[in-house]
Design a protein around this nucleic acid. Sequence first.
DNA 1: CTGTTAGCGCATTCAG
DNA 2: CTGAATGCGCTAACAG
Lengths: 349, 349
Amino acid sequence: MAVTLSDVADRAGVSPATVSRVLNGNYPVAAKTRQRVEKAIRDLDYVVNAHARALLHATSGMIGVVLNDLADPFFATVASGIQSAALPMQRLVIVCSSGGDQETEFAYIEMLRRHRAEVVILVGSSPEDAAYKRALAGQAKGLHAQGSRLVLCGRPAPSRHTPAAVVSVDESRSLRELAEYLSQQGHRRIGYLAGPPNQSTSTARRSSLTNALQRVGIRLPDGFVAQGEFTRESGYEATCRLISGGVKFTALCAANDLMAAGAMRALDESGVDVPGDVSVIGFDDLPVATDITPKLTTIRVPLVEVGQHAVAMAFAPESANRRRLLPTRLIVRGSSGRAVGTREARRTA
Amino acid sequence: MAVTLSDVADRAGVSPATVSRVLNGNYPVAAKTRQRVEKAIRDLDYVVNAHARALLHATSGMIGVVLNDLADPFFATVASGIQSAALPMQRLVIVCSSGGDQETEFAYIEMLRRHRAEVVILVGSSPEDAAYKRALAGQAKGLHAQGSRLVLCGRPAPSRHTPAAVVSVDESRSLRELAEYLSQQGHRRIGYLAGPPNQSTSTARRSSLTNALQRVGIRLPDGFVAQGEFTRESGYEATCRLISGGVKFTALCAANDLMAAGAMRALDESGVDVPGDVSVIGFDDLPVATDITPKLTTIRVPLVEVGQHAVAMAFAPESANRRRLLPTRLIVRGSSGRAVGTREARRTA
DNA sequence: CTGTTAGCGCATTCAG
DNA sequence: CTGAATGCGCTAACAG
């Protein structure tokens, strides 16, 4: 069906070995022979069979990426960072979107193992239950035994001994900045739109914020927290629940920008002015943050860089078990300001 | 390095062929033997080598997708449609983001050919120059010769004889609806934010709109058109150019929602009220359309379905040279309304 | 029901 | 500088 290396050899009147040498350019080949071979390749429109090569080399040189949802800009942005770093290394990127389903995720990892992916990158939150961690640790061992490298992006390793590199962000500093900022602006009662329960990202962001607020003497009681699922809709609904529950807050922080966008809409529909009545703060700094009005104050996460570092670490020597933390940054925009009820706010009112 | 089928055979005390039969379940194997083999597989954590299989079958069963930019929600959404359709078929999806660069695009197609991708899906606009078309037609032939199927999404085939299936949208009907709507609302002077020149999507959308407007007696002169690149920033800048150029329009159509979002910001900063002074219309109906205020009137393109149909057509018998057109829909939201200067508008003013 | 054999397409020895 | 031979891991005939 397809043209093979021997076909090329026949047409050029040389042996397969010679064609191979021309292809790889590693061994000396007479100029005349080379030209004849190159012509045959062009004439026949020959394309090497990557599988035959992979069979010899025991690896395919592909980068597998497993993420929750390709259509979510958070993941899409990390993926594009991975892709951009993979291109100059001549690596193909396989993107697998699991939809957040654990079984699908493992099915994809298995498929990537079958294809002897050189690198497997897991992006985003991971469930925090023991069974999952054990299963993942098992896959990690398997990948390692195969000679594939595993990189975890934005999620912790399932255990200390897991042979995996980790690229993550350290949001604690930015959140301390945010806490100080909110405190200075007179905010005392703060609502929080959390991510789905038992997900590493959700708990990390929430506990970091809780700690940061504590440092400035602000508590984040459970009653001020509503769960969502990192989507606009869930942010909208969670905000509605807080409002209809009679929770009084002067600032509303969200676990990501999408939820914050949903919150803005809910507040708007309830006649709450942002930032006049309530300040809204997002997380990630996705494009949506500046699409909405007023523009969203948020914690910028360097998503493209996260992806690029993941690739870099995968190809760095001794990458297993290495960890890399990227800093985030507080971006203050129009959606936040002084709390209502503060002296200053009363004066200007 | 990695565990092979023979390793399993040795451990189970059977021949490699038997292990293969257990794996594929096609031939009868004694229950006892099967169990022994299955245990060995588990003990050794054996994972089949997809390359060895692909070598026999002359295809890898992978779906390759080449698109402009993964971080662009337009492409990400189509890709997620492809992914969702590929999962139940147990197909791995390779996503290649070319950044709109032709060379990169061909490099990726070549890599996909090397990997004997079963299906190659090209998503989005294509340059409209002859050299490109010839090159693409060549690759299409090569893919066909290899036994790979080619699907073009949202772009025309380079020639009548190209062995490729095409999935596209037919926006003409919606644009006629839009033209009638705008006309009824009293709009006569309409601005247009076009996509990059010599791109199939740009010219298709522009000419369809021009035709539709013509039917209701509205012209779209070049002076009312500003070029952009399907991004927010370019939409912003293009709108600024129109405004500072003194172009007076009561409605502004954009080649996509991202540019419309940029336009809204530019208009806002210039003190132009939407939809009071100017109606804004987008294209695609991406999430950003409802993030902005007022929500964007737009032409909805069924992007997920486009991706799903692409996969379906690839696996349909006799798919080569087939064409499938999906309908779009006009979605009227808050960003559009009556033109200023019409009788009704004056009355209510 | 199971083992033996051959070959998929290629890169790499080893000889010449 | 070039050709012949070997084997990567697996499946499909072909025997038993």
